[in-house]
Nucleic acid binder design. Structure first.
Lengths: 241, 241
DNA sequence: GTCAATAAAATTGGATCCAATTTACAATTT
DNA sequence: AAATTGTAAATTGGATCCAATTTTATTGAC
């Protein structure tokens, strides 16, 4: 018979019909990530964080070599990234990091204005105190940090913690993709023109509206907040490009 | 030297530096679709049209055999369909056609209400007479046809011809995906309760508002139109499920 | 030297093979 | 008979190979 201790390690956790009564510090071997998803996550992060410039060729062989795998999982990752609009795949010509035009960026910000104001308005009546305190913590951290790489991440976490209670998962997914496509262009632009200070003041106002249960105000402030970031981005990119 | 007639067939059309002066009914061999995209298109159509029930397993071998290809392009297609929310892929367990819950369907309709009212409002000031006459043609065809399979397609074409002039490509892509996820549930429901007659009256009203350049009215009517379809769908699905 | 035609190298798409995992089912125990 | 274990079949994930295509280098003509 198999050793009982090792055997229990193989139980897939979380399956309701077979809950183990043994409390062990076990690793979830069954749900470990596939090669493709690892490559996908890494590439996605690198593109969103702006570590790969627009137009950078993504050679299957190179990437496969870096991850010590074959080209099959790489192709899978590139295909997914294309669907998300982060890379462009051309038959027999390979993949490149997808750039974005000014008017595309502007449109995506308009999309966010529409989405996020709607979602926060739906969220306010359902908002828990846990979400609010989490949002406040991210808000504080956002102001304190100097690392421009972290601003977008904390900004994202702050807003998301105010949106989650809406329960609108489809809307949140759409917002996520919109942020993925534009995040890398915002960071550099926040560092100039005291963008962080302005953003923080606006965050505080939005947070205040949420705590007071004023959904309409929270929505309006969110609209104005995103609209302001959009205008500043367009101004800077418009000159620089 | 290579035969000139055959050679021109192999010229990739649309390349400005080398336009052929021979007018031949030639197939674009250079830009022909990849195996993966053919499988993808077929599966996508089958799922959207409701030919494959929710939860139907999609075996790689079966599909590869049907298209006389290997499993590699099939995997690619299934991966893309998963990103679009049309199939669910579970590691080592295969893919199934993705179903949708009542509250997911409801949320997607709410998303559409937001998107489509915004887009049509942006479109009206830019709308060309060509778009309007195209919309009217689809509107007529929608009422005349008895084929329940065609209603959704014509409905889609009608609305899309009113949205295109907005130039909001990102928004239109988002609308497309939302329609892809819900289309198959609407057809069966339109056939009962004189849904087509009601929809047609509403289409005429929207078209009228567009022709009069009344963007705000067109947006409001679009909101009400989609909202009505959503409520009817939820009523029927809520009873049937 | 410049341009086109040709050949070689690089790169991707797809087929086939093997490994990892799940599923179905028979054998065993209680 | 129900539950558990062990085994074989089915299925998917990934590696390697070959074909199709593009890109780059080379040659030749003018």
């Amino acid at each position: 018979m198999m050793d009982a201790g090792i055997c229990t390690l193989w139980i897939t956790p979380g399956t309701p019909q077979m809950a183990s009564n043994l409390k062990l510090k076990s690793i979830d071997i069954g749900n470990r990530a596939s090669a493709g998803s690892i490559v996908y996550d890494s590439l996605r992060k690198a593109i969103i964080d702006g570590e790969l410039d627009d137009g950078t060729p993504l050679r299957q062989d190179d990437i496969a070599y870096q991850f010590n795998t074959s080209r099959i999982p790489v192709r899978e990752a590139l295909s997914k990234l294309e669907q998300e609009g982060l890379v462009i795949n051309r038959r027999y010509r390979g993949a490149v990091v997808a750039g974005i035009s000014l008017r595309e960026a502007s449109e995506i910000f308009d999309f966010r204005i529409l989405m996020e104001s709607e979602v926060i308005a739906a969220s306010v009546p359902k908002m828990t105190s846990a979400s609010l305190s989490k949002a406040r913590a991210y808000c504080d951290e956002f102001r304190r940090t100097d690392d421009s790489k972290k601003w977008s991440k904390l900004n994202r976490k702050f807003h998301y913690s105010l949106y989650r209670d809406s329960g609108l998962k489809y809307h949140l997914d759409m917002i996520d993709n919109a942020l993925d496509r534009t995040e890398r262009y915002v960071d550099t632009q926040l560092s100039i023109s005291h963008g962080v200070e302005k953003a923080h003041r606006e965050h505080l106002a939005i947070l205040d509206a949420c705590e007071n249960g004023n959904a309409e105000l929270a929505a309006r402030l969110t609209r104005e907040h995103i609209s302001g970031v959009r205008d500043e981005l367009l101004e800077h990119l418009g000159g620089g490009r």
